[in-house]
Computed example of a mutant assay.
Amino acid sequence: MSECRERTTGSAVRSARGGELDSVTQAFVTHRNLLFTVAYEMLGSAADAEDVLQETWLRWVGVDLGSVRDQRAFLVRIATRKALDRLRTLSRRRESYVGPWLPEPLLTAPDVAEDVELAESVSMAMLLVLETLAPTERAVFVLREVFDFGYDEIAQVVDKSPAAVRQVAHRARAHVAARRPRATVSPADNRAAIRAFQQAVETGDLQNLLDLLAPDVVYLGDGGGAKRATLHPVLGADNVAALLGIGLTRLGADASVEPVQINGWPGLVVRRNGEIDSVVAMRIEDGLITGFYYVRNPAKLAWSRRPC
């Protein structure tokens, strides 16, 4: 997940330092991938995570390195606090969002999928689970459960005592455990579902796709008010099947699909007349599709055009 940040934040950092990587810049570059991933898991948005990195950099250049004992922990503290500030603002905006809100899909490189724990933590399904946590709970969960930070370190980030952080971590862990996928996701199952969807788009034959729908499948479409999408979740295999039949018919002969890695798992980019129309990700449990995530909001598709 590093290439995009090398092209964006990295270029800004080099330009700010006249093209030289001094000790301040080198420390930031060394931990940039970690900072981006923490911010993305906190916010569910690559664009907002990139903004957090820029804000972290601006704060970091004013720090006296001689007073910093652990540069990694210090940088994570800055980035997490910036992300928390932004998350509280975004939470208020999402209350008035048109239709279901989905995380901004991130086109990821194959090496992310090879790290099963990281792939699960950035999956669309997990990011939606994290959305149900309060901001501080989300920060504690991400730092503790995903990146294995110590309670003392996290306490400094969220301005709580280590004992309080332990309680927050326990509460967040239980909350996530009750809502996360019930079984380990198989990459093979994901690929089978993606192939079935691709075949449905290319041939109009939906049967293989419909055979993979779980009875309690949930469909979420995110158009953000800018593109046509369902305004409410669609529940149940029959309802989702009917919706897919209508939607695929509307795509028309000018549609094409490209298998990609979305948030660490197989997904699809759907194009119309060569332009990205939407990104499709799925949640698979026991070989069946239990979650169908269809992102059409143009504002969320920019990071789907370049691998990270």
Results as ranks from 00 to 15, higher is better:
residue 275 E to W: 07
residue 267 G to I: 13
residue 226 A to G: 04
residue 7 R to Y: 00
residue 127 L to V: 12
residue 204 G to I: 05
residue 68 V to R: 04
residue 166 R to Y: 07
residue 225 G to L: 04
residue 163 A to E: 12
residue 164 A to D: 15
residue 22 D to S: 10
residue 306 R to N: 05
residue 221 G to D: 08
residue 185 V to W: 02
residue 305 R to Q: 15
residue 164 A to N: 15
residue 262 I to N: 09
residue 86 R to A: 01
residue 43 L to F: 04
residue 31 H to V: 00
residue 187 P to Q: 03
residue 90 L to D: 03
residue 118 L to V: 01
residue 144 R to T: 09
residue 40 Y to A: 06
residue 281 A to G: 13
residue 36 F to G: 03
residue 225 G to C: 05
residue 67 S to K: 15
residue 109 A to W: 04
residue 43 L to Y: 04
residue 36 F to I: 00
residue 297 N to G: 01
residue 148 D to E: 10
residue 88 R to I: 13
residue 4 C to P: 00
residue 254 D to I: 02
residue 290 T to W: 05
residue 248 L to G: 15
residue 69 R to E: 14
residue 45 S to D: 07
residue 197 F to I: 07
residue 164 A to T: 12
residue 273 N to Y: 13
residue 227 K to S: 11
residue 148 D to F: 06
residue 119 A to V: 01
residue 227 K to P: 01
residue 49 A to G: 01
residue 211 D to G: 03
residue 281 A to H: 06
residue 37 T to L: 14
residue 178 A to C: 11
residue 173 R to E: 11
residue 257 V to M: 10
residue 4 C to T: 10
residue 103 P to F: 09
residue 291 G to C: 14
residue 296 R to N: 06
residue 246 I to M: 13
residue 49 A to W: 00
residue 22 D to V: 13
residue 208 N to V: 04
residue 23 S to K: 10
residue 175 H to W: 09
residue 198 Q to C: 03
residue 44 G to R: 03
residue 120 E to T: 05
residue 300 K to C: 01
residue 248 L to M: 15
residue 56 T to F: 03
residue 95 E to F: 02
residue 299 A to L: 12
residue 233 P to Q: 07
residue 15 S to W: 06
residue 32 R to C: 05
residue 21 L to D: 09
residue 285 E to S: 12
residue 30 T to C: 04
residue 68 V to W: 13
residue 54 Q to M: 14
residue 181 P to L: 09
residue 140 V to W: 01
residue 168 V to D: 14
residue 212 L to Q: 11
residue 209 L to N: 01
residue 221 G to H: 05
residue 113 A to T: 02
residue 240 V to E: 08
residue 231 L to S: 12
residue 186 S to R: 10
residue 230 T to I: 04
residue 223 G to K: 02
residue 54 Q to E: 13
residue 192 A to T: 12
residue 74 F to D: 10
residue 176 V to G: 13
residue 214 A to M: 08
residue 114 E to N: 06
residue 150 G to K: 07
residue 267 G to T: 13
residue 171 R to F: 06
residue 253 A to N: 05
residue 227 K to C: 08
residue 236 G to K: 11
residue 167 Q to S: 12
residue 6 E to H: 11
residue 15 S to R: 07
residue 160 K to G: 02
residue 200 A to M: 06
residue 232 H to Q: 15
residue 138 R to T: 12
residue 195 R to E: 09
residue 61 V to H: 08
residue 64 D to C: 04
residue 154 I to S: 09
residue 293 Y to C: 05
residue 152 D to T: 11
residue 235 L to R: 10
residue 157 V to L: 05
residue 62 G to A: 08
residue 2 S to A: 08
residue 234 V to T: 11
residue 53 L to H: 12
residue 290 T to A: 10
residue 61 V to E: 14
residue 248 L to C: 08
residue 45 S to E: 07
residue 31 H to T: 00
residue 45 S to H: 02
